[in-house]
Write a protein that binds this DNA or RNA. Structure first.
Length: 434
DNA sequence: CTGGGGAGGGGGCCC
DNA sequence: CGGGCCCCCTCCCCA
């Protein structure tokens, strides 16, 4: 027989003990403010504390203390209250920092609730905006913005799928942030340059869906966490899909009965877009495009070049790379930029890289033709076909020949005869890339 | 320091 | 829905 109230009662008691500093065996110092808590509870709630306490318990029996500078006492209050009550007091003001702290403390429940909060906030913002522009919404009551910003999770409301409630101050907040850091352990922050590009591109996207709502998560203590991009990718896609399924109508657009989108009268002639990126304000028409777009957030690069090992997020980019870098498809002399044919020039191989030189430039450089086993190289230097698990589909023998090519060194110039009839090129590219 | 070109990367869209 | 093409932008290297 199970008494359903036992868990919550127990939690209440523990919370009471914490408030009265009874049996507290752990102190957490956050920017000078001391929080008392129970090791057992912290241990059970946070991966970070689990690690910390399991280490300190080996070393000493003294009361454990932890010090944090990465987040504010207010934020930790929210976290600690959640630990002891199962209720997360999220607002537009604190959600970013709470998520950041939760990420640091490895509290996946809290992270996912924060993500949902942010996501839902975006949904609601879209709806708000939609209503603002259309002035004809029929479901204003269902978008109640005054609901209390409490989230149940963990012990109390595990089954409930939390929806976000916007605080009135949301709009202000989003402007300050630009990108979500990977919230969980083993999630990979996109490359710095990508972030920069992303930020730039966002300004472009903002034309489509304003106000800016992208969310930036300050990395706790500046720690870059290693990542499992595939995990993240799957998560993102799932989230994106949910977005699209639940409510992803961009400004001015709403769903009809089926999957069709009906655009309302709108000041700008916006395209009919319907899939919104959960990480930025980008909106696309097709799910496949969103899937592709998500890779720029997840950093996923499923297409490795078998010739040089460089990885690409898209097959067409890999193909393009392979053609220009490893197949010398451009009929242009690299040196003098003149057009060359198989009669007026030759392909030069430099390591795994190939390009063309006209006969004049070849003579100038002073390189004689050297025999190259073209067939074998074509075999080993072909882009993988969507190699999801990052392994190259090569036999051992093929692998060896690849290694030989790479180890051949990039300084050696190898000349081979140009044999680039169109048919030949087709043959070289197509079978490998599919 | 600056401009040009190559390469990479992202979006739109056609097939 | 995936593949692939085109276009555009940014970064980096080099003259």
């Amino acid at each position: 027989m199970e008494i359903s109230s036992h868990q919550s009662h127990l939690l209440q008691q523990l919370n009471e003990q914490r408030r009265q500093d009874v049996f507290c065996d752990c102190s957490i110092l956050v920017e000078g403010k001391v929080f008392k808590a129970h090791r057992n509870v912290l241990f059970a709630s946070s991966g970070y504390f689990k690690m910390l306490l399991s280490q300190s318990s080996k070393e000493t029996s003294q009361p454990a203390t932890a010090t944090f500078q990465a987040f504010s006492p207010d934020t930790f209050t929210v976290i600690l209250d959640f630990v002891y009550s199962g209720k997360l007091s999220l607002t537009g003001q604190n959600v970013i920092e709470v998520m950041s702290a939760a990420s640091f403390l490895q509290m996946t429940d809290v992270i996912s609730v924060c993500k949902t909060f942010i996501k839902s906030s975006l949904d609601i913002s879209e709806k708000e905006k939609d209503r603002y522009f259309s002035l004809s919404d029929k479901d204003t009551s269902s978008n109640g913005v005054e609901r209390p910003p409490f989230y149940g999770s963990g012990w109390q409301e595990e089954s409930a799928s939390p929806r976000a409630h916007l605080s009135p101050d949301h709009g202000k907040l989003w402007n300050k942030y630009s990108y979500p850091a990977a919230p969980q352990r083993n999630t990979q922050p996109p490359l710095a340059s990508e972030q920069r590009k992303d930020a730039i591109k966002k300004t472009k996207h903002l034309r489509l869906s304003q106000p800016p709502q992208a969310v930036h998560l300050k990395s706790a203590q500046g720690e870059a966490r290693p990542s499992d991009s595939s995990n993240h990718a799957a998560q993102s896609e799932e989230q994106a899909q949910t977005d699209a399924e639940i409510d992803s109508a961009p400004a001015g657009c709403q769903y009809g009965q089926g999957s069709d989108v009906t655009c309302r009268s709108f000041p700008d002639d916006l395209p009919r877009l319907r899939f919104r990126c959960p990480y930025c304000t980008h909106v696309v028409k097709r799910k496949a495009d969103l899937k592709r777009h998500l890779r720029c957030h997840t950093g996923e690069r499923p297409y490795p070049c078998q010739a040089c090992g460089k990885r690409f997020s898209r097959l067409d980019h890999l193909s393009s790379h392979f053609r220009t870098i490893h197949q010398a498809c451009k009929l242009i002399c690299r040196k003098c930029k003149r057009h060359v044919t198989d009669l007026t020039g030759q392909v030069v191989q430099e390591g795994t890289r190939r390009y063309r030189l006209c006969n004049e430039c070849l003579a100038e450089v002073g390189i004689d033709s050297l025999p190259v086993d073209l067939e074998a190289e074509q075999h080993s230097m072909s882009p993988a076909d969507g190699d999801k698990d990052s392994r190259w589909h090569l036999s051992e023998e093929e692998n060896r020949s690849y290694v030989e090519i790479v180890e051949d060194g990039s300084s050696d110039l190898v000349i081979k005869q140009v044999e680039d009839s169109e048919e030949e090129e087709e043959k070289e590219i197509k079978p490998n890339i599919r």
